[in-house]
Structures are given as structure tokens and as C-alpha cells.
Simulated assay, not measured.
Amino acid sequence: MNQVIDLILNHRSIRKFEEQLLSTEQIETIVKSAQAASTSSFIQAYSIIGVKNLDAKRKLAEIAGNQSYVESNGHLFVFCADLHRHELVAEMENQDLMRSLQSTEKFMVALIDASLAAQNAVIAAESMGLGACYIGGLRNNLEAVCELLKVPQRVIPLFGVVVGYPAQQTDKKPRLPLENVYHEETYQPSKETYEQQLKEYNELISEYYHERTNGKRKDTWTAQMAQMLHSPKRMYMKEFVEKKGYNLE
């Protein structure tokens, strides 16, 4: 085990921070680390918006479901899928790139590029003794987020990442069994094996919640997932993405 692997394996989401802002050097180091991530065909189809303004943070916190840590943190990064600059590429090179920019493939490239960059950013932050938490709740109302952040066409805010000095440490949440996630050669579709693994995982998660909440929670993972997925969320997304000029072919 080396220090990098130990850092990755001990990741946990931090949702309470000290009242200390990140320095310019820390922010730039995190962004440079994000930029060092792999990018499909060197397209670099993402942008990162740093939010310091407290009023803007407060509004984003409300959009995200009144999550206080979206407002109170060391710095808020918003990761965006971004093919806007590639429209400029088309103009500069006098090329018609519209069909490619509107394709589902390039939409996937932008999502993947942004996600890889964000994970690099989080690892970099944690290596500096900081904590972080992903904020998917920004997608509750992307129209409002876009207006607030003044993003142009073909830019979609995907999620936020709050970073700061941890005010408390949370327990490490157990992940699915490796055997349930990792397959060799082909996908292993044994229903019986999957169900047995999930039953064992349910017991582990139930025990985790029981200990963490002093017996107030004992829900299982499958029950939690079934409840969450029962009511579809953010069903405006397809229309919004297409309006932004993505996923049209």
C-alpha cells in the first residue's frame, strides 16, 4: 500500500467545514490537477467555474435542496460539460463542426472528461489535507444555475464540488462487494450470485447505519435504492440537454 492508494481508499464525503477559505495557490493547484486528467482525443470538453460570492453560493445551496455546505465551505467548484469553445474552433478553422458537436458521442465525451477532471481535483484536494463533497443537487434547476453562472450555449453545469478544511470526520461508508462490481472476461449474469451478494451487503449497510445513528436507522441498501428510484427525478433533463445543443444525433 502506498500513500496515493491509501488516500483513495480512505475517501469520504465531508459536509461540514471550518470557516477558512482556500488560498489562490490551493485553488490553482486543484484546477491544474483537474486539467492533468485524461481527456478523450485531447478535446478537453469541460470547464470549471469557481464560486466565491456568498450570495451566489446561497442561491446555489437553495437550488441544491438547502444543503448548507454548498454555502459554507472553503471553495465551490462547478464542473461543466463544455463544447462552446469548440464552436470557436469551427469559426477559427472555417469548418462546419455542428453535426459532431450535436452528437450523443460528443455529449458523452464532455460528461466523461468533466468527471475525470473532477476526480483528479478531489484527490488533489484530499492530498492537501482538505475534504470534499460532490453536489449533484445543482441539477434540480439547471436553468437557474445557468442564469446565475452566465454560461453560454453548449455549456451544461453537471455538478458542484465543495472543498474546505474538514470540521468533522465521517465514517467510511462500505461499498458494494468487489465481486459484485468487477467481472473478468465477460459480464457475470448469475442472478442467484448477485442476490446473495446483495443480501450480504444489505446486512453490512444496515449495521453501518445502526452504529452511525445509535439505532435510529437500520435500512438496507436495496431498500434505500428502491425508495430513491421509485419516484423519477429531474425528468426535464432530456429536453434541457437538447436545448443546450447536445445529444441531437
Results as ranks from 00 to 15, higher is better:
residue 2 N to I: 05
residue 4 V to P: 12
residue 5 I to W: 02
residue 11 H to D: 03
residue 15 R to M: 05
residue 21 L to C: 02
residue 23 S to D: 04
residue 29 T to P: 00
residue 31 V to D: 03
residue 33 S to V: 03
residue 35 Q to A: 04
residue 41 S to N: 13
residue 42 F to P: 12
residue 43 I to K: 02
residue 45 A to L: 02
residue 49 I to M: 06
residue 49 I to F: 05
residue 56 A to Y: 00
residue 57 K to V: 00
residue 58 R to L: 01
residue 65 G to A: 08
residue 67 Q to K: 14
residue 69 Y to S: 05
residue 71 E to H: 04
residue 73 N to R: 03
residue 79 F to T: 04
residue 80 C to I: 05
residue 84 H to A: 12
residue 85 R to G: 13
residue 94 N to A: 09
residue 96 D to L: 04
residue 96 D to G: 05
residue 97 L to V: 04
residue 98 M to A: 13
residue 99 R to P: 05
residue 100 S to A: 09
residue 106 K to P: 00
residue 107 F to A: 12
residue 113 D to Q: 11
residue 113 D to N: 13
residue 119 Q to L: 05
residue 125 A to G: 04
residue 134 Y to C: 07
residue 136 G to C: 01
residue 137 G to I: 04
residue 139 R to A: 14
residue 142 L to Y: 08
residue 152 P to W: 14
residue 154 R to N: 10
residue 155 V to Y: 02
residue 156 I to W: 09
residue 160 G to A: 03
residue 167 A to M: 05
residue 172 K to W: 07
residue 179 E to A: 15
residue 180 N to W: 01
residue 185 E to D: 10
residue 192 E to S: 15
residue 195 E to K: 09
residue 196 Q to Y: 03
residue 197 Q to R: 13
residue 198 L to F: 14
residue 199 K to D: 15
residue 199 K to Q: 15
residue 201 Y to F: 14
residue 202 N to P: 11
residue 207 E to L: 05
residue 214 N to A: 11
residue 222 T to V: 13
residue 223 A to T: 14
residue 231 S to P: 01
residue 234 R to Q: 15
residue 234 R to W: 08
residue 235 M to W: 06
residue 235 M to I: 15
residue 239 E to I: 06
residue 241 V to S: 04
residue 244 K to W: 07
residue 245 G to D: 07
